[in-house]
Design a protein around this nucleic acid. Structure first.
Lengths: 121, 121
DNA sequence: TTGACATATTCCGTTGTGGGAATGTATTGT
DNA sequence: ACAATACATTCCCACAACGGAATATGTCAA
């Protein structure tokens, strides 16, 4: 099984950096595709493709006006992502106090082994 | 250029549903790999591979104890994700009031066209 | 209609993915 | 030393993603 489709959920949709750029740019006001292209300096087909992904997961609102198509970030759709990260928020303070307690213990007992580190690779 | 590597940043790392499950499971307490396998009912090599990705982006802490390896979510590492979603939070109330204003205008003028909808496809 | 403009879609090629199965490595107990 | 246990790594593979280029669709103006 390959990677999940980018359109399967917002987590996969926002995994791409340019799509995050687009969402940030469209958060305040709606903009036509052409402005996204010129402002973010991306190729037009690329922008259209990214917008399709964002549309498919409901992360943007669309409004057509003549030849132009205006997009705007559907900020409400980002809430699930916000809520998910918030479930970890409660542990921030707890984990901090644990680290603090361990630091004090190390200082008192001379324990300098780096337990509980973020070990990459 | 294909999709960005899952290890390129936390956005790509948490795009995978199982990795989110693992992070949620390891948020409260550290657990050995075997428990992750039995609790989440995933294949052991699969779990090890997911844990490697999470390690590479710093989303988990590792502690070895004999034959067992204990993992715990590095909740601090999730903060950038939380901060990113928070940048949209300020627009939630604004966008809501806009929608409300439009709804009132529609009610008054009999405008039932569905402008500003989340149009998929 | 024809042409210009704005955006969307299709085709192509390269690449990383995630599952399964098999194998490798480290640690412990006998 | 040997077997058992706990994880990690490797190999294979089907597949979707992304960029670029080309092309298609849709709308307006003359």
């Amino acid at each position: 099984m390959p990677r999940a489709a980018t359109t399967s959920d917002i987590f996969n949709a926002v995994a791409e950096a340019r799509r995050r750029d687009i969402l940030a740019y469209l958060a305040a006001d709606e903009r036509p595709v052409g402005e996204i292209v010129s402002t973010l300096k991306l190729a037009q087909p690329s922008v259209s493709k990214h917008l399709k992904v964002l549309r498919d997961v409901g992360l943007v609102h669309v409004r057509r006006e003549g030849r132009q198509v205006f997009y705007r970030t559907n900020v409400q759709a980002i809430r699930p992502l916000h809520e998910w990260t918030k479930t970890f928020e409660q542990f921030w303070t707890h984990q901090l106090s644990r680290v603090k307690a361990r630091a004090e213990a190390a200082h008192a007992g001379g324990n300098t082994r780096d337990r509980d580190r973020t070990d990459n690779r």
